[in-house]
Amino acid sequence: GMFTFDSGLAAGRNILARADRPTAILAQNDDMAVGAMMAAREIGLSIPERLSVVGFDDSEVSRITWPRLTTVRQPVFEMAVAATEMVIAQLEDREPLARVLHSHTLLVRESAAPPHA
């Protein structure tokens, strides 16, 4: 996808049209997840009873869509600072940090549930 609502809608339509329809979708970001939720609604799938949808980013849309979107929060500011420090180190001919680990948090909301029997 292209990290947009429209690409999530298109991908959701494609995935949900399969004979082996999934019970869950993990989208690349929250906008795509909401697009997938719309695709599910178009064919009458209830969320989370028939399809769980999870996004990534904890963007504002994850808190205002219904059901509220289960998502993964990542420390975007801290990640940007670390990336900037790595670039500056390279520009100054210093050895950049090889790897920086950042914690992510799963925010369980109403869009995910155990698979339907």
Rank of each mutant, 00 (worst) to 15 (best):
G1I: 06
F3M: 06
T4P: 07
F5Q: 02
D6L: 02
D6R: 13
S7Y: 11
G8N: 09
G8I: 01
G8A: 04
L9P: 00
N14P: 14
I15P: 03
I15H: 10
L16I: 04
A17I: 12
A17R: 13
R18I: 00
A19V: 15
R21C: 15
P22E: 03
P22Y: 04
P22S: 00
I25R: 04
I25K: 03
L26F: 05
L26W: 15
L26D: 04
Q28R: 01
N29E: 09
D31P: 03
M32N: 09
A33I: 14
G35C: 05
G35K: 04
A36K: 10
A36V: 10
A36F: 07
M37T: 00
M38A: 02
M38P: 00
A39V: 01
E42D: 10
I43E: 12
I43H: 15
I43F: 10
I43D: 14
L45S: 02
S46Y: 04
I47K: 01
I47P: 01
I47E: 03
P48A: 01
P48W: 05
E49Q: 10
E49K: 13
V53Q: 05
V54M: 11
G55I: 06
F56G: 00
D57R: 05
D57L: 00
S59R: 13
S62T: 04
S62W: 04
S62Y: 08
R63P: 01
I64H: 07
T65L: 07
T65I: 08
T65F: 08
T65K: 08
R68W: 05
L69H: 13
T70K: 04
T70E: 03
T71S: 11
T71Y: 07
T71Q: 00
T71G: 05
V72A: 13
V72N: 10
R73P: 13
R73S: 15
R73G: 15
Q74R: 08
V76H: 14
F77K: 04
E78C: 02
M79I: 08
M79W: 07
A80W: 00
V81P: 06
A82F: 13
A83N: 04
A83R: 03
T84R: 13
E85N: 13
M86A: 14
V87M: 15
V87C: 14
V87I: 15
I88Y: 06
I88M: 11
I88N: 05
A89K: 04
L91K: 04
R94L: 06
R94T: 00
R94V: 02
R94H: 06
L97S: 11
L97A: 14
R99C: 11
L101R: 07
L101G: 05
L101A: 09
L101S: 12
S103W: 06
T105C: 02
L106V: 12
L107S: 03
V108H: 15
R109Y: 13
E110C: 10
E110A: 12
E110V: 09
P115E: 09
H116I: 03
H116L: 07
A117Q: 11
